[in-house]
Design a protein around this nucleic acid. Structure first.
Length: 481
RNA sequence: GGCCCUAUCGUCUAACGGUUAGGACGAAUCCUUCUCAAGGAUUAAAUCGGGGUUCGAUUCCCCGUAGGGUCACCA
């Protein structure tokens, strides 16, 4: 006995290329809602337009979802009791449902060629009238032999009003209602028919989809009516806009493949965290979420109504916050993909962890960091003598001599640090009193430049502690020669 | 053009009809500092316009305006 239906949601992309953040956000919300309710999440492939289908995109899409660990209960690889999750493998079902409408006199073969319909449309446009196919609906219907496109006959021309979980009450007038195509001449269904039939057969309880569908709702509703079935709960998501707000974000406008973010070294949870917050908020001030926390916090009625611009700087910040929470093991596990080959296996590498953590936005930044900025950890730097002199001594003719004296003294102080106590605190303790006496800039700047060969680097105690006693003293000696 | 949706800092957003309109990113300044990074603190920054309703509108209604969407045998 159950008095509430089990929640079933679906993500229903077309295999027309990659998935960008807009589609993934839709998938995420549907996923979160299913998981929050211990429900079912279905991945359904809407490949009813043969012309638009792109080779390899099905796999690419699944890889995107897998990267983000948005796992599906039924999908192209896992059919359900309802059959395949790939629409092109469900043609019989659509045909069957179309026949029901034909039998009721609610569907008829389109007597016109696409060119003729286009001509009607042109004419209406010239006369500045809205084009409605139903104005051209034939008096009597031919028998449908399956070779012509099948149209739906809207019989109830009225204003529709419906409820949307995210938007509230919406409505649209009869202008939005028309005799649309159910089955194309090639025997494939249109989205209009296919998604309604599938959602019904798959037990979908909540439809998450983007805003661009709103104007089609009267069509959908008239079809639910014609089939005499209940419609699922509608949840309409706001659009994600391009930065200039002139357009909805789309593949043609530079929207990135979500797997590009993987290549750049973003964490999957950070990506989801960021996407969740575009167009939804938890109602608290929490900004950083694990996937599990998102599942717990998500609720469709807090989905935003207005469009939003995606902001990659925020993504970077969120990613940093997620990186902070990684254990050392997890950190290096993610990092390994971006570690330059010349550094792999170097004993210094793992000692730089904290420095790296403080300096990266995303793991992709590691490559540059390790091969340039931090190169001195892995090989002896060449040191420019002029650079070693602190700025206030630069004009002093004795500057270089004095600097070398400071450096030599620091070398002696460091040499006295016991090898087993070679750590940040001991190194600092050994040098700091002297540095205070002589001026920190005079002493610490030369030390740091000597060790790194660079004007910018972490502080010398940090660098020395990572390099170890031998290397530190050797580098000082090399400059003093 | 018809129909539809939307409107709070630059961006993402919060605010039972009553708040000094809050938070976050980003920015700026300061602190910390031998230089970077990180960290801490502070500051600037918004209710699209006009009418109602109300003792009181960011909030409700209407009209503008602006932006977006849609008008396919594409989804």
């Amino acid at each position: 006995m159950e008095n509430t239906k089990k929640v079933v949601t679906r993500f229903a992309p077309s295999p027309t290329g990659f998935a960008h953040i807009g589609s993934i956000r839709t998938a995420l919300y549907a996923y979160l809602w299913a998981r929050k309710n211990n429900g079912t999440f279905i991945l359904r492939i809407e490949d009813t337009d043969q012309a638009r289908s792109v080779e390899g995109s099905l796999e690419h899409l699944q890889n995107s979802l897998k990267w983000l660990s948005l796992d599906w209960d039924f999908g192209p690889d896992k059919p359900g009791s309802f059959g395949s999750c790939i629409q092109s493998e469900r043609l019989d079902t659509y045909r069957e449902w179309a026949d029901k409408l034909v039998a009721k006199g609610l569907a008829y073969p389109d007597p016109y060629t696409p060119q003729e319909v286009e001509a009607f449309r042109q004419k209406a446009q010239e006369e500045k009238r809205p084009f409605l196919f139903r104005d051209h609906r034939p008096e009597t219907f031919e028998v449908w032999d399956g070779t012509k496109a099948l149209r739906f006959k809207v019989s109830d021309i009225k204003r529709y009003e419906w409820f949307d979980e995210a938007r509230g009450t919406l409505s649209a007038g009869p202008e939005a209602l028309d005799d649309f195509i159910l089955l194309k001449a090639d025997g494939f269904p249109t989205y209009n028919l296919a998604h309604i039939v599938d959602d019904y057969n798959m037990g979908v309880t909540h439809i998450f989809r983007s805003d661009e569908w709103i104007s089609s709702f009267p069509r959908f509703l008239s079809l639910y009516d014609a089939f005499e079935i209940e419609h699922p709960v509608f949840v309409t998501l706001p659009p994600i806009l391009r930065d200039d707000r002139t357009k909805k974000l789309g593949k043609r406008d530079g929207a990135k493949d979500v797997l590009d973010y993987k290549k750049e070294g973003y964490l999957p949870d950070a990506m989801l965290n960021y996407l969740a917050l575009i167009g939804w908020n938890p109602g608290t001030e929490q900004e950083i979420f694990s996937l599990q926390e998102m599942i717990e916090a998500f609720t469709p009625n807090r989905i935003q109504k207005s469009g939003a611009v995606a902001n990659e700087e925020k993504l970077e910040w969120i990613n940093r916050e997620h990186i902070k929470q990684l254990s050392s093991t997890e950190f290096w596990n993610y990092a390994k993909e971006w570690i330059p080959s010349e550094v792999i296996g170097n004993e210094m590498l793992f000692k730089t962890e904290q420095l790296l953590r403080d300096r990266i936005e995303k793991f992709g930044d590691l490559t540059e960091l390790l091969s340039n900025e931090f190169e001195y950890f892995f090989k002896q730097p060449s040191v420019d003598e002029k650079m070693v002199i602190w700025k206030t001594l630069k004009e002093d003719p004795e500057g270089l001599v004095k600097t070398k004296q400071y450096l030599a003294h620091v070398g002696n102080l460091l040499a006295s640090v016991i090898e087993t106590e070679w750590n940040y605190e001991s190194i600092k303790a050994a040098v700091i009193t002297y540095a205070d006496e002589e001026g920190k800039g005079n002493v610490l700047w030369p030390l740091r430049v000597t060790l790194t060969g660079k004007e910018k680097s972490p502080d010398p105690f940090e660098v020395a502690s990572i390099l170890g006693k031998d290397a530190t003293l050797a580098r000082i000696a090399a400059v003093l020669v």
